[in-house]
Amino acid sequence: MMLKFEDLPEETRVKLTEKGREDLWHRVDEFGGVKQLSEAFDFSSSKMYNWRSKNSFMPISFIRRLMGQNPPEIDAVKGKGRGKAWGIDLPVEVSEELLTRVEASVTVNRKGTPVYITDEKSLASRFLNLLEEIGVDQSFYNREGRYEVRYSKYAHNVLSDIDFSEKFSALVDEEGDITEEKVRASGKGVSVEEFDAELYSRSKIFDLALARGDKEKIQALIAEESSRVRNLVN
């Protein structure tokens, strides 16, 4: 799914690139300057002078009023709070895989922080990679075999508001099950022989190999796990 400037929520604050700032303030000057713009659109002139001199984050409503749906170049966005900025180059492609994993496995804690929780490091690593692909900063925690990935409230709000079609293989990773005949998730089933998507859950990969009777894959997975145990012990 393509995330565009017009999709960002009204709570957004925006920081522009150098070229973006030049375009924006050139538009202000064309309008007659800060004072005249303030009188016409009810934006605080003191705040505008501050935004201009300090190159700070500006409300998206200000940029939209001046630039319409053709925004200047954006360096980063963030919400109203003190959370980390999201360095983003719009428009950006957001994968249905990421959105599926967010919907299936992310919860919001008492502080409002989104947290992806799994007992498989391979799934946590995949989720980290998907966030990194679109520039979202994250924190990773290993809590005695329970892995957590945390990221900004603002980014979560944006991602949660995107319409998308669920990616079946990601649902299998997150909450599905594999029997001798079927790969199942969210009420949908595909035969083990017809399922050809990539999985990242090592337990589901093993279950699929068992269902297919793939002895070579099973032996390879067991060897990998044995190697990991030896490395931990050493």
Rank of each mutant, 00 (worst) to 15 (best):
L3S: 07
F5P: 11
D7T: 03
L8K: 03
T12C: 10
K19E: 15
D23G: 12
L24D: 01
W25M: 07
H26V: 10
R27E: 14
G32Q: 01
L37N: 11
A40P: 15
D42R: 10
M48L: 03
Y49M: 05
S53R: 15
K54H: 04
M58C: 01
I60E: 01
R64N: 01
R65D: 00
M67G: 04
A76M: 04
K78D: 06
R82K: 08
G87Y: 14
I88S: 08
D89C: 15
D89A: 14
V92I: 14
V102T: 14
A104P: 02
S105H: 05
T107W: 00
V108C: 08
R110H: 14
P114S: 14
V115K: 07
E120D: 09
S122I: 03
L123A: 02
L123Y: 09
R126N: 03
N129F: 15
L131H: 04
E132S: 15
E132F: 15
I134F: 07
Q138K: 08
E144R: 15
V149N: 06
A155V: 08
H156R: 11
I162K: 02
I162H: 02
D163E: 15
S165G: 02
E166D: 07
L171P: 12
V172I: 11
D173L: 11
G176Q: 14
D177N: 08
D177L: 11
A185F: 14
S186R: 13
S186G: 02
G187D: 10
G187W: 00
G189I: 05
G189R: 06
E198Y: 07
L199A: 09
L199C: 09
Y200R: 12
D207R: 03
R212I: 03
R212K: 13
E216W: 00
L221D: 04
R228W: 00
V229P: 02
R230C: 07
